[in-house]
Simulated scan of single mutants.
Amino acid sequence: MSTLEEHVDVGVPIDTAWESLHRVENYPRFVDGLRDARTEAGGRAHLGVEAGGRAREIEAEVSDRGGERVMEWRTTGEPELKGSFSLQSIDRDHTRVQARLAYDPGAVRETFGGPRGFAQASAIERLVRSDLEHFKEYVEQGS
């Protein structure tokens, strides 16, 4: 498994950022390649993903450590992905959002295609960084 960690500082209080992370249905507004997303019963989420020219439906389990401001998730099928979002208050009006992603590059490459495509570590790093920047824009605009 490869692990990637990225963070972004956002200009909103920690409660605002935390609430925005829990609106799964709005993820397509800031996550590249996500066509649709919805929460389901039992802490599950359904995601319609398009990456590397391939469309896939992915199911994930989501759990919170609310007191610690950590949201953890993992896919329930292929590709096996798991990660977390951790929030830290910088001051009253600023929050650091830390994203962590663990993945098997080979499994991601098989699912989304291309020997030099989506599964390259540098491509995944750019994608996560871009998604965090889009989240920053999304949350700071009060969407």
Rank of each mutant, 00 (worst) to 15 (best):
G33I: 04
E140Q: 08
E137M: 05
R65A: 14
P79D: 01
L101C: 08
T39W: 09
G83M: 01
H94L: 04
E137G: 07
Q88M: 10
Q120A: 10
E59N: 13
R56Y: 09
E5W: 08
R116L: 15
D104Q: 00
E40W: 11
R44L: 11
S2M: 09
R129A: 13
V108S: 02
W18K: 07
E40G: 10
R96C: 06
Y103T: 09
Y138F: 14
S130V: 03
D32E: 14
G43L: 08
G114Y: 06
H46F: 10
V31R: 00
G66A: 15
F118M: 00
R109Q: 14
I58S: 09
E19M: 08
E110K: 08
P28M: 04
P28V: 03
D131G: 02
E40R: 14
R29W: 05
E125A: 12
V31S: 02
I124K: 01
S89W: 01
V97P: 03
E125S: 10
K82F: 12
S122Q: 12
R109M: 12
E25R: 04
E78H: 12
G77L: 03
G83W: 00
Y27I: 08
A41T: 15
G67R: 03
A107N: 01
F135H: 07
T75E: 02
S84D: 09
S2H: 10
D36Y: 07
Q120N: 08
R74E: 13
R100N: 09
Y27C: 04
Q141R: 12
D15P: 07
F85W: 15
V70H: 07
H7N: 14
R23W: 07
P13W: 09
E78C: 05
G11M: 11
L127M: 11
T76C: 05
G53W: 00
A102K: 13
A37R: 00
L4E: 08
A51E: 02
T95W: 00
G83E: 01
L127A: 14
M71Y: 09
G113V: 04
S89C: 07
E61H: 09
R96H: 06
A51S: 06
T111I: 04
T39V: 11
V62Q: 03
S130L: 10
G33E: 04
V10W: 06
E110A: 10
R38F: 07
W73I: 03
R92T: 14
Y27W: 12
A17N: 07
A99I: 07
G142E: 01
H46Y: 12
R116Q: 11
N26D: 15
L87I: 11
R100E: 14
P13Y: 07
T111K: 10
V31I: 13
E57S: 13
V62Y: 00
D104Y: 01
R29S: 11
E137L: 04
V49N: 00
E72Q: 13
A99S: 09
H46D: 13
T95E: 03
E57P: 05
L81W: 06
S130I: 02
E137R: 10
K136R: 15
E72T: 12
T76L: 12
K136E: 06
A123K: 09
T3D: 10
L127Q: 10
S84F: 04
F135E: 05
R100G: 05
G113Q: 04
E140D: 03
E68D: 15
A17H: 04
A107T: 07
R116K: 11
R44I: 05
Q120W: 05
V10T: 06
